[in-house]
């Protein structure tokens, strides 16, 4: 026992420079993440709805489980997150590989640049670009539909179309972001690996399959996990694009908690909603990490 302790101290001593490099980050996490996280205990009070703060036990959680809006938000969050992972997640990988196949370096850079531009815009801007583009009276999409003899559609208020619009606009803004990460990873793959595959008689497609993909495997796992960790927290995009007519299909946990919290001054209740969101995220992230460990032999953390 004692021996082990000594060894630990020895090891710490040995790695003290290494640990020193980590110290600022740890300090930051303590100051700006862990200390504010204590605020989550406020979910057990009536904070926000009165200046006389008192302990109310699980009242906020009970109210939450009785609330229809909470179930609706939960449902919408799951649907949108699932669609997000299915439709958005593979795209940057495919796009990065396709771009990598372009011969001209200049072309490659240009395409990469163009795809990346929307990421420079904040969601408010992207939202307003989509609203103009999809306008039933002047938007280019409806002009095209009318040109082919169709009837114009008011996408922004359609309960059928609104979710696809959310996913498409998400892809439009974010795909460049993911692509950049994959391209950065692909660009560090050792060219010798490709040459070796060539010698083995692999054609181009096989080389992508057997060299490129395995090399970016760990990045894919990381990106999947990072995506999952914030997919339930989707917020900015929805708050700028939704309107009262499509609350039923677009109100998610984060927007619900924001509305109830700061706007309607039930801050403790908003925090309770946030905590349940965290719980769902925890399940999602931890199970994915397990799966990733098992199938890809790749643990992200």
């Amino acid at each position: 026992m004692k021996n082990k302790k000594v060894r630990l101290i020895d090891r710490i001593n040995q790695q003290k420079f290494l640990l020193l490099l980590l110290l600022p980050a740890l300090l930051w996490y303590l100051l700006f993440r862990y200390i504010p996280m204590m605020g989550n205990f406020l979910a057990l009070t009536n904070f926000g709805s009165s200046i006389h703060i008192k302990f109310v036990g699980l009242k906020n959680f009970i109210r939450l489980f009785q609330s229809l809006d909470f179930y609706r938000a939960f449902n919408n969050t799951l649907i949108l997150s699932f669609a997000n992972i299915v439709f958005y997640f593979p795209l940057p990988i495919i796009l990065a590989i396709l771009m990598n196949e372009l011969y001209h370096v200049k072309m490659k850079r240009l395409v990469q640049f163009i795809v990346y531009i929307p990421y420079f815009f904040s969601w408010v801007v992207v939202g307003s670009i989509f609203i103009t583009m999809l306008s039933p009276t002047s938007g280019i999409i409806n002009k095209i539909i009318e040109f082919f003899g169709g009837k114009s559609i008011y996408f922004m208020v359609s309960t059928f179309w609104f979710r696809p619009i959310l996913i498409i606009s998400y892809i439009w803004r974010q795909v460049g972001y993911g692509t950049v990460i994959y391209i950065a990873t692909i660009s560090t793959i050792d060219p010798e690996l490709y040459d070796a595959a060539k010698v083995d008689g692999a054609n181009h497609f096989q080389r992508v399959l057997h060299v490129t993909l395995p090399c970016i495997k760990s990045t894919i796992a990381t990106m999947l996990l990072l995506n999952l960790s914030h997919v339930l927290l989707i917020f900015d995009q929805i708050i700028v694009m939704q309107n009262a007519a499509v609350y039923a299909v677009s109100d998610v946990l984060r927007t619900y908690s924001y509305r109830e919290g700061l706007e309607n001054m039930n801050i403790a209740y908003g925090i309770a909603v946030g905590l349940l969101t965290s719980l769902a995220t925890a399940i999602l992230v931890l199970s994915t990490n397990k799966a990733s460990k098992k199938f890809l032999d790749e643990s992200v953390f």
Binding site: Y154, V157, S158, A245
Partner: peptide, 26 residues
């Protein structure tokens, strides 16, 4: 207390109901 908690959510609910009807989504 019950009313004070939901007063603003209720307002949003009314607006949602009205706009759903007018815009034809329900």
């Amino acid at each position: 207390d019950k009313y004070d908690q939901v007063v603003l959510s209720l307002k949003q609910k009314r607006e949602e109901t009205a706009s759903k009807i007018v815009l034809g989504s329900a």
